[in-house]
């Protein structure tokens, strides 16, 4: 029997109850959230379960939502079951004041650099990571550049005026 999204959802709810929530299926990819305290338990369950077998970490990245108070940062895991060829997406939200999330490096060697990249750009502090330091940016950098409070261009520039195009203007 093919592994369906509904079945995965049932198994997760059976195991974790109402701790895993907000199940959606954007573009047929099962997406759900778990509290950050149990992210490793969820990942381990998905990895070890004989039916689920989500043993390939496709991608790990973060997203910044400045308006969501108390859960500004989301760490997004894309997992893949290569046997049944099913993908799922797990989101773990954390507050920006204390962005601590447990590391997945124990489970996936691939998570090492992906988590360093996420730390580098969003400042997510992966607890237990063997070597959590900046990877793409210079080590002296003292901010996390992909956060939304850093606009791409200098907002005080006056030589690029949107007024001509019916936008912005004073």
């Amino acid at each position: 029997m093919a592994l369906t999204n509904e079945h995965i959802k049932q198994k997760l709810i059976e195991k974790f109850g109402d701790q895993v929530k907000n199940f959606t299926e954007p573009y047929d990819l099962l997406t759900f959230e778990s509290p950050k305290e149990i992210n490793l338990k969820v990942l381990n369950f998905l990895y070890d379960d004989e039916e689920l077998k989500f043993r390939f970490l496709t991608d790990l990245c973060a997203v910044h939502y400045p308006d969501k108070k108390g859960k500004e940062l989301a760490v997004v895991y894309h997992l893949h079951n290569l046997v049944d060829n099913v993908r799922i997406r797990l989101k773990v939200f954390t507050g920006i004041e204390k962005p601590d999330v447990y590391t997945a490096t124990g489970l996936f060697s691939a998570a090492n650099w992906m988590e360093r990249e996420t730390y580098d750009f969003y400042g997510v502090n992966f607890i237990g990571h063997p070597n959590l330091k900046r990877i793409l940016n210079v080590e002296e950098m003292d901010y996390f550049p992909m956060r939304k409070e850093f606009p791409l261009e200098d907002q005080t520039r006056t030589d690029k005026d949107d007024e001509m195009f019916g936008r912005g203007g004073n």
Binding site: P26, Y27, L29, T31, T58, D59, C61, V63, H64, V76, H78, R87, R89
Partner: peptide, 30 residues
């Protein structure tokens, strides 16, 4: 919307994780 799409690139799985909040530009692209 939120979409993950991947293609078989020269080196392997080249994935695009695109989050749109309904604006003109991506909210997040990885």
């Amino acid at each position: 919307g939120e979409v993950y799409n991947s293609v078989e690139g020269g080196n392997g799985e080249l994935g695009f994780y695109l989050i749109s909040d309904g604006g003109r530009t991506p909210y997040r692209l990885h």
